[in-house]
Simulated assay, not measured.
Amino acid sequence: MPQGYVFGHLTGMPLYHWQHPLSYILLTCFCYGLIAAVLARHFAGLSRRSRVLWTGITALLTVVASSPMGGMLWHYHDMQAGYFPSFWRSRMVEYGVSWGLAAGWAIVGLSVPYNVLGLLVCYWLTSWGSRWFHPPQSVV
């Protein structure tokens, strides 16, 4: 990012994703992997144009699935930085899910050009993985 800052710096948020990048990256990759695995059989039989469309749909579903958990993770890291209230689990779920759904889209919007690169990787990975369901037919 410009001047070495990450996305939350623009809004004044604590930069937990800078301190714990792997947990946020792995969370998104895990959600993508589950969604892509479910859609792989469908993806395998599509034309290239349809695959591009389904890559976008998979990316949108990944944002919807990972944002609430990312929000909960952010709240967990926030409590680690300060203190854990007696009702920390319910706070993490309640605020984490709602704030994650609200901020997840902003983070995606601020992630250009990284999310474009991510879409290209998603297209390639899903195309490669879908071959396990429908291997190329050899002409005899």
Rank of each mutant, 00 (worst) to 15 (best):
F84N: 01
V6N: 10
T28F: 01
A37R: 15
P14A: 10
A103L: 09
W132A: 11
N115F: 12
S23A: 13
A37C: 05
H75L: 06
L110K: 01
W99H: 13
S98D: 07
F133M: 09
A59P: 00
L120E: 02
W99Q: 11
A106F: 15
L110I: 04
L119W: 11
P68G: 05
V112C: 04
S50T: 04
G96W: 13
G104Q: 02
R91K: 08
Y16V: 01
L34M: 13
G118Y: 12
F87N: 10
M69N: 05
T126M: 14
Q80C: 11
H20F: 15
V121E: 00
A59E: 06
L15C: 10
G33P: 10
G8F: 13
T55M: 07
R41A: 11
A103R: 00
R41V: 05
V6T: 14
Q80E: 14
V63F: 06
L110M: 12
S90D: 06
H20P: 04
F7N: 12
L110W: 14
A44W: 01
C31N: 00
V38P: 03
A36D: 08
L15G: 13
A37D: 11
M13H: 10
P14N: 08
G4M: 04
Q137N: 05
V93H: 12
S50R: 09
W88R: 04
T62I: 00
G82S: 13
L10G: 12
G104A: 03
F30W: 14
D78S: 02
W99L: 05
S67V: 03
E94Q: 02
A103Q: 01
L10V: 14
P113Q: 11
P135E: 09
G109A: 02
Q3V: 04
N115G: 03
M13A: 07
G70F: 01
G4A: 04
V140F: 10
I107T: 07
V93Q: 08
Q137F: 08
R131L: 11
M72S: 03
G70T: 10
R49K: 07
G109E: 09
L39Y: 13
V93D: 01
V63I: 14
V93W: 15
G45D: 08
C29P: 00
